[in-house]
């Protein structure tokens, strides 16, 4: 067999592999859409679920998901951003920072059930927060921090050294260079990282069972007092 023939076979093989993957994903998606779309209606999205009969909607679940997502991003974005800026711009390359990076890698591979149990022991029991939106958001923050830090650090590092030199050579201080030159240039990458992180948080379930609880109280969407148990804004209620 000559090289040309082998090449053709290899290409055909790769096409076939890619095709199989596309086919699987596509059929899954098609199945979900085909079964799901007819069920979605405005009513389904805007009414609470019912406990002992069929029917009802998902408004509370939907609201809680978004609320958790927003809270988690509010807690984790500043933390990750700070850590990432430190790691990419300020940290010297030595044993300690290598160690920190390794820890972040290890944390990012934690199964979410483990994160959930940790949150249950620390936030729910130890700190006495109970099953609550806040416990859930903090557990999700733990779950989210390593990857978000990594992606932000990577997008900061992707900005060429010449941009940093340009800033410093103009007489900007280190912080001004990071703040005014590097961060704006890295913004698209940082946003992509945040959107991916948001997707992971939104789809997370296991970590929440042990921290945010499994059932929400009946919410009253006209009650915006954040201290009331039936208010959707209350962070101390279960979800």
């Amino acid at each position: 067999m000559n090289a040309k023939k082998i090449d053709k076979i290899a290409v055909g093989f790769l096409y076939a592999m890619a095709g199989v993957i596309v086919l699987i994903l596509f059929s899954l998606l098609a199945f979900i859409l085909w079964r799901g779309i007819p069920q979605i209606s405005w009513e389904f999205l805007t009414t609470p679920s019912k406990s002992f009969q069929t029917g009802g909607g998902i408004v509370i679940q939907l609201f809680n998901s978004f609320y958790l997502l927003i809270l988690t991003m509010l807690i984790s974005t500043p933390l990750s951003l700070g850590a990432a800026i430190y790691l990419s711009e300020y940290a010297k390359k030595n044993l300690l920072t290598d160690f920190i990076r390794t820890i972040i890698e290890v944390l990012s591979s934690l199964p979410s059930v483990v994160v959930g149990l940790f949150g249950f022991l620390v936030f729910v029991l130890q700190w006495g927060l109970g099953f609550s939106i806040l416990s859930g958001a903090m557990a999700l923050t733990l779950f989210n921090l390593p990857l978000l830090t990594r992606t932000i650090e990577d997008s900061l590092r992707a900005i060429p050294l010449t941009q940093r030199e340009a800033g410093l050579a103009l007489g900007l201080s280190r912080w001004e260079t990071v703040n005014l030159v590097i961060l704006p240039a890295a913004l698209p990458g940082i946003l992509t990282g945040m959107i991916l992180a948001a997707g992971r948080i939104f789809g997370e379930a296991a970590a929440l069972i042990y921290t945010a609880g499994q059932s929400a109280p009946a919410l009253d969407f006209t009650n915006w007092n954040p201290l009331s148990i039936s208010s959707p804004l209350n962070v101390m209620r279960p979800a």
């Binding site: 060429p160 010449t162 941009q163 030199e165 340009a166 410093l168 050579a169 103009l170 007489g171 900007l172 201080s173 030159v181 704006p184 240039a185």
Partner: peptide, 18 residues
């Protein structure tokens, strides 16, 4: 920072800000 303001620099690769 003041020194670098007094001593400007142009690099090998043009590096305008985006």
């Amino acid at each position: 920072n003041l020194l670098r303001k007094r001593v400007g620099m142009v690099f090998q690769q043009p590096n305008p800000f985006p």
